[in-house]
Amino acid sequence: MFDFWIILTACIIAINSSLLGSFLVLKKLSLIGDALSHAVLPGIVIAFLISGEINSFWMLLGASGFGIFAILLIDWLNRVGGFGKDSSIGIIYTLLFAVGIILITSKAKNADIDVDCVLFGDINTTPLVDKTVGVPTPTFNLIIITIINLIIVSFGLKGFKITSFDKGFAQTLGISIPFWSYLLLGLTSISTVYSFDSVGAIMVIGLLVIPASFANLITRKLKSFLVISILFGIISCISGHLLAVLFDIPTVPTIGVFMGLILITTLIGKTLLPNKLEVKA
């Protein structure tokens, strides 16, 4: 049961991140995903300082507001403030992350939130924490978030698709570009916050971008893109955890390395054998 909860939690995060990450990658927003995964830290720390626990559902939902706040700031710095796009991203997420670290080291010392878990998460303690209806609370929260995301994406698929593929055309149909882009970033921000505690800031971005990039390598159809991305995420999490247990190394970075190796191998395979390794349907 111990490993089961860890693998389940990782897989739920993988489903969630791969799904949203696919659209981030297609919209060339990978680095916004990177920024989000760091920028939510102060939100999480403040939620923790107020509620005294790390898994409070509503507190975490509030914390994801920091993600949206960061996006707005980046946008503002870029459009109104006159900074370049990359610079705006770089300035805002480092600032918010720095604030988060300062809060942790000065205010939340000795609590069960520390800088190490910020980076790597502590998925291995998942089975030990309090349970909600028999499921570890973080996992339970993630399941709910994932179901919501799956519903929104399956109904809104057309919207995400057209605003990513051809913005100008979407606008002429009267489709609101900001609505769809904030919907995507909002969902990403919420998912990031709930995944953060388990896998940490760096792997949140890995799970957002690597499965989608893998799918990008081997398919050119949107539906198979999403399916492959999610499957890749799930398989990587299971294999990553098993390898980690085998070699007695931490789970989360092993998942990252596993995903990286598969991606790079596929890429080498593709350069050696062009026209192969493409999923047609």
């Binding site: 593929f165 051809d166 050119r220």
Partner: peptide, 10 residues
Amino acid sequence: ESVDWDFPTT
């Protein structure tokens, strides 16, 4: 130029 030609779409 306004279209993303790499987008997975038929």
